[in-house]
Write a protein that binds this DNA or RNA. Sequence first.
DNA 1: GTGAAAGCGCTAACAA
DNA 2: TTGTTAGCGCTTTCAC
Lengths: 334, 334
Amino acid sequence: MVTLKQLAKELNVSISTVSKALNNSEEIGGETVKRVKELAALYNYRPNKVALSLKQNRTKTIGVIIPDILNRFLAKVLIGIEQEATANGYNIITCVSNEMLDKEISSLQLLANGSVDGFILAISEETQIKNETSHFVKTINQGLPIVMFDRVANDVLCDKVIVDDFEATYNGTKSLITEKRKHIAFFSSIDDLSVGKLREKGYLKAVSEENLKPYLLKIDKLDDVQQKIYEFLKENNSIDGVISADSSSGVIAINAASKLGIEVPKNLSVIGYSSKAISNHCIPKLTTIRQHAKDIGACAAQLLIKRLQNNEPKDEFSTRIIKTSLVSAGSTLS
Amino acid sequence: MVTLKQLAKELNVSISTVSKALNNSEEIGGETVKRVKELAALYNYRPNKVALSLKQNRTKTIGVIIPDILNRFLAKVLIGIEQEATANGYNIITCVSNEMLDKEISSLQLLANGSVDGFILAISEETQIKNETSHFVKTINQGLPIVMFDRVANDVLCDKVIVDDFEATYNGTKSLITEKRKHIAFFSSIDDLSVGKLREKGYLKAVSEENLKPYLLKIDKLDDVQQKIYEFLKENNSIDGVISADSSSGVIAINAASKLGIEVPKNLSVIGYSSKAISNHCIPKLTTIRQHAKDIGACAAQLLIKRLQNNEPKDEFSTRIIKTSLVSAGSTLS
DNA sequence: GTGAAAGCGCTAACAA
DNA sequence: TTGTTAGCGCTTTCAC
């Protein structure tokens, strides 16, 4: 990599002249600016990022900690963050906590050494179960702002971007009720997550309002999901509606119903949280609750960048709610 | 963040003494070392990464450029890279090219300013179609080593990690032939990729060796995959075997067959490239070709790190081939 | 055993 | 209009 020093030497001017010329300073003569720029272009000069960071005491880099990159929702949020960050001249360093508290803490520490200017993160499952938040507070107190999305810690003071999880399943269940469904089940493999709990509550409120009996199927990580859902539908043959809280049990429910000879959507309506690509993995295609993951990511990035530019009051934090939308495909009547 | 300067001031010693003490230099007296370390621990001192990078002229950061983070295979490779990098004290900065040449070039340029010590990447679709490689060569000539994985450019001199794509579909097809399948079709939506072409060749070789008729179904990004596969199986009702080259058409084929009343695996065997989670999206579950994505990522990271530590001869590059394995589930007889 | 000083690449206040 | 200098935080050589 070429440095200012080398350019200066070759041009027989001082380093600062070169620096100023390249930064379009008014101080430098037109002729000099031209010479400098030409040579810089020739050598494909780029200011050294590390030196700039040291000088300016900020890296223009955002640390992103997500629990699981194979989770399509989280991956899409990441895309949203990346796009918004890039558009604003920020890079991102991504760490995967793998749903573990330890990894989350170490990632935070690892990057809190001047590597990044702030963090965007979704809390790991283990962290949520143990309800541990001190590492976040510590990081914030070190002067590194955090923006949380989706899975957030209510008692940590920071900017947040969340989804209207409660409303989404409430409305989804209501929509099944409108289709005259009377035995609506709720499938979930994300019982431990804050969002999982909210989704369940939304469902429960909707069924209880209509005095319908709740049917809950909790799926464990270690279970054979396919088997479990198949058995459940077989045993509870009055089920005529399903709301799935995670990204795959909706699709699996339709496939299982198909095997059991249950016609979808004639005799069973299914709503899930899958992505578009996954909702293709069953016939008919799955009606889904879309979370606008990319918007969530973009919003989180905006909030953090604003704060980094000091455009936000120091002790006021905002919580943005990104509304979901229900996208009808073939697995529901309406 | 606390700096050496602040510690030095508080301890009434010089900056270099503090630095040496913290780095366990033999020069410094035991008592001093103790005092320094205690204060450093108290203030939770961490050496500033940026200053270190500037001083040592390396960032211990790897740039990773992947075409699509929603692709589970690529995401898993990323996990492998991240784990191996972390284990060796490296961070990663991830950019998503979104299958576009422009974005690939700009990501490369953006990070080739001292931000990273080298790159790990899979070539974008557009880059492969246009057969453009000069940006890679330029980067390498700037002194930043590149390791390519999965989708590689044969004529760029660098380390590579690839999959035995040709062999995988060849063996997969052979395995269907062993099941006495006579009308084996090949489904692909990744016709443009080098790996897609190799997979097709493997299939074609196997069928031609047995004088079987090839059935090729090429799926476009804009097609309704489900519809297209359904129609194809309906029209070609003699098909008794399917090899799918991408991550979802295998699953979709089984679902379509189910709708058409074709029994899997009795009358139709299907082999695909899906991940474990996705192969769950059909009944019976999909027999798959596993690519050991995490191993690929780990291997790529190892190659790059070795090169960065100067443990590799300057003009010798290695190509590692990671073998696939066929994992039987319910969609095949054997 | 400890400290002063140089230097990594850059910007910017100040001097000429 | 151009150059000198200090300094961001750190390591390391050399002097004391």
